[in-house]
């Protein structure tokens, strides 16, 4: 059993990511989309938390949403995979359910 969690809000604005990390269980995947992509960056106060999360969960970030925001994929935290929409579909298909942390 595993769940794909999607998070779409900047962690600087909302608690969605925090709540997601508090409820994800071993083997789950977390995909950062839309304004949540900022949480995937090495620079910034969330980096330590996300680096840690990437050790427990399969953490991914949506490449097109990084590019749209002018964020260099090279700055993404080690252990966080950059995926495209096809990768998003694969993650959803591989999981038993998808929980969008809205």
């Amino acid at each position: 059993m595993s769940i794909l969690h999607t998070v779409n809000k900047s962690p600087f604005e909302r608690s969605n990511l925090d709540s997601c990390l508090n409820h994800a269980t071993k083997g789950d995947a977390i995909l950062l989309i839309e304004d949540a992509v900022y949480a995937a960056m090495k620079a910034g106060t969330f980096a330590a938390r996300m680096t840690d999360a990437a050790k427990q969960f399969k953490v991914c970030v949506l490449g097109p949403d990084l590019q749209a925001r002018g964020v260099d994929p090279a700055g993404v935290i080690d252990g966080v995979a950059v995926v495209d929409y096809a990768g998003f579909v694969d993650l959803a298909a591989e999981s038993n359910a998808v929980n969008a942390w809205l």
């Binding site: 059993m1 595993s2 769940i3 994800a24 269980t25 359910a97 929980n99 942390w101």
Partner: peptide, 18 residues
């Protein structure tokens, strides 16, 4: 508890959050 809530969620087929 939060941990039990997480465990309950992990067993769901359809999750609709708002």
């Amino acid at each position: 508890s939060r941990a039990d809530m997480a465990a309950l969620m992990a067993g769901m087929d359809v999750i609709l959050t708002a």
